[in-house]
């Protein structure tokens, strides 16, 4: 069943958004090669985080599918198609991430494993937001909701006090603890994603409770 679905699914991927995200991410990661005197770890980390965010924002559009209402009721339903999309796009994104890591000069590279964990957590959060939006609403383009929520979450993450911080500087005593927190974010995002990929039988919409209509993300 998966084989015949592969080609149409690949053709349906929202290429513009994915390409824009990856292109911006790679451009950002290439900056130290283009500018003089920028080989500090702090700078490399800031750029790789921006790259990760750009990738995540691009991948947030992964579930955009104008044909969603028509495939909700077919035997090979949404979950299979969603997993298939993820399986098609994520290896390409991983390749892009490796390229971004290689683009940052050796001297400016922060601990690569930890930064990759951050990127994975950001991407998983974006995908989980998109999947949750797709499950909660009848939206055919859940990506637009995810890309609005993700920057807000990132800003909240940036404003967290040092003790619970996520975006810590390289060499900070909180570095290891922060990456445990990133692992927790990744885990939560994966759980939300897995739970949301299942299509609901009936949707509940988010109401703001003031009788003023639906709260829009």
């Amino acid at each position: 069943m998966i084989g015949p679905l592969l080609r149409p699914t690949a053709r349906m991927l929202p290429r513009a958004a994915l390409t824009a995200g990856v292109a911006l991410g790679l451009l950002v990661a290439a900056l130290p090669r283009l500018l003089p005197d920028t080989e500090s770890q702090l700078f490399g980390l800031a750029l790789l985080r921006a790259t990760a965010l750009a990738f995540a924002l691009g991948l947030a559009f992964l579930l955009d599918d104008p044909a969603r209402p028509t495939t909700e009721t077919v035997p090979t339903g949404q979950p299979v198609r969603t997993w298939l999309r993820a399986a098609l796009a994520l290896p390409a994104a991983a390749l892009g991430w490796c390229a971004a890591l290689l683009l940052v000069p050796q001297a400016a590279r922060p601990p690569l494993g930890d930064v990759t964990a951050e990127a994975a957590a950001l991407t998983a959060t974006a995908l989980a937001l998109a999947a949750a939006a797709a499950r909660r609403t009848s939206e055919t383009q859940p990506g637009r909701i995810a890309v609005q929520a993700l920057p807000v979450l990132v800003v909240v993450g940036l404003l967290l006090p040092e003790r619970w911080g996520l975006f810590v500087a390289p060499g900070s005593p909180e570095w290891d603890a922060a990456h445990h927190r990133w692992a927790a974010v990744l885990l939560v995002a994966l759980v939300v994603w897995t739970a949301s990929v299942r299509e609901p039988i009936r949707r509940r919409t988010l109401r703001n409770g003031f009788g003023m209509g639906t709260l829009r993300p």
Partner: peptide, 18 residues
């Protein structure tokens, strides 16, 4: 398209960080 604004914000952040 909806991806323009968030990616613009990321680009702006990078410019400021640079």
């Amino acid at each position: 398209s909806a991806f323009a604004a968030p990616l613009f914000v990321v680009g702006l952040y990078v410019l400021l960080a640079v």
